[in-house]
Design a protein around this nucleic acid. Structure first.
Lengths: 256, 256
DNA sequence: CCCGAGATTTCTGGATCCAAGATGCAGACT
DNA sequence: AGTCTGCATCTTGGATCCAGAAATCTCGGG
């Protein structure tokens, strides 16, 4: 690609199809432009978001130089960010050959959801023991928001807010941290979930809130488990589709 | 026991009392001197080990310059190491004021062990479903080693090896990763555990191996849970003692 | 004698520069 | 003609250098 067109490309791309990571990441960088204490965490946020929303697909090579100039900083904060992302399990370092976006195998996805079910149902049990009306009201609100946003960019954020509120009553910060880690690992694939999810789950957050409000622990746990299993299956389908697409890649037509 | 005797207690804890982190860390650096692909991971290993064996106590300020020249490298790989250690939950960054060794509150310790019980008993159940004689033999060996080493530097390593072998049959790499994270958080306090641990636990690994060999899942799970609860109580006592010691600090003699 | 404001000093965070290793291509040899 | 080896280039990893912010120390005032 010629350098002269990259300026215009930024203008043109308004659709949600991040064809080339270059311009898409530049837009992300623009949104995150101001108000950061250190550019290191800014770089971290930008790259993390880019991985999570699919701008940087699994397997993508992450060249420090490119990322640095796209974000508008030096290579050093990029390196910091990549190190953090490695600890988060989102990228993978190959010894002297740089970092790539980690991809998730079906087995790993299965294990992640197995663990999420284990940890989140446990958190739910603890949380329901200390539920307050006030919290319940907030939960209701957040649940409706999460159910409403079946798609869109802040789709994942809405869910995160709901579960954060739900489990927060348990006052188990380390457990929540682990849950967040696990959610992060599958976050990139949750975006495509609505593509395969059926209507069964469309009100799951509200239903769950009902069970919590009623104090029916077993029902709530069952709903949560069922919900997670549903999402898991969706993610597995997504992974399946993706591996198929990789096996038979779409033909790319040469540009004019 | 009075706080004034805490000096003597330090003698008990270790063969060598790491009075000043300087020289102790320099020795550590010497042991790790050679055979690393990158000095960044070397710095990580050294600092991590220093935190885990108590050379760098909780609350200690980690000045990059000092660490760098002690290890014998530049500040940059030290920064990388600190970032990784932050993700591991071992150090904590204060915005523009550098990093300190994270300390563990009683509540956090309790939560860690609650989670370890949850995750490890689950791993044990899965593991026992796929146990082989070969693995059992190795387990027996490692268990005896772990039981034998009630003290010493590689005390934690022996236990890690045992549990790694025990849970490995389950083929749950992510779950093991989480368990390792949790063990890391309390690793620094496990060193002092034997001081308060009673004889009840001295053969716990061997007993556990027996139950696993017998295929008695519930018995094995009960033993594991009991063992972890015992360690937890020891760690809590240790934390209690440490907070007392902090409240009544050792008298400081003026330097020459 | 104590408290506060300012200056100094120290330390972190970022940028630029340098060296070492890996990849890929081209040429030569079998 | 195919393959192996050597060279050029690219990219990461590390070191030194620079700027900004925070803590401390000191001096002056109350």
């Amino acid at each position: 690609m010629t350098a002269g067109e990259s300026n215009g490309a930024d203008e043109l791309i308004g659709t949600e199809a991040p064809r080339d990571p270059e311009s898409a990441l530049a837009r992300l960088a623009g949104r995150h432009a101001a108000g950061y204490r250190s550019v290191g965490v800014m770089a971290y946020d930008i790259i993390r978001e880019a991985i999570l929303d699919g701008t940087l697909p699994p397997g993508h090579k992450l060249r420090q130089e490119t990322l640095a100039e796209l974000i508008g900083v030096s290579r050093l904060p990029v390196r910091s960010a990549l190190i953090q992302l490695e600890s988060d399990g989102l990228v993978e370092f190959h010894d002297r050959r740089g970092a790539v976006v980690k991809s998730l195998s079906s087995e790993q996805a299965r294990e992640v959801y197995q663990l999420r079910i284990l940890l989140e149902t446990e958190a739910l049990r603890h949380s329901m023991a200390d539920m307050t009306d006030q919290r319940l009201a907030r939960l209701r609100e957040l649940g409706r928001t999460a159910d409403a946003k079946q798609e869109g960019g802040d789709f994942v954020d809405a869910r995160t807010a709901f579960y954060a509120e739900l489990y927060d009553a348990a006052r188990l910060p380390i457990q929540w941290e682990l849950i967040e880690q696990l959610r992060l690992k599958v976050g990139r694939y949750m975006l495509g979930w609505r593509l395969v999810g059926d209507d069964t789950h469309h009100h799951s957050h509200d239903e769950l809130t009902d069970a919590v409000a009623a104090g029916d622990v077993e029902q709530a746990v069952a709903l949560l488990r069922h919900h997670l299993e549903g999402v898991r299956d969706g993610v597995l389908d997504m992974l399946e589709a993706e591996s198929l697409a990789k096996a038979a890649p779409t033909r790319r037509r040469s540009r004019s």
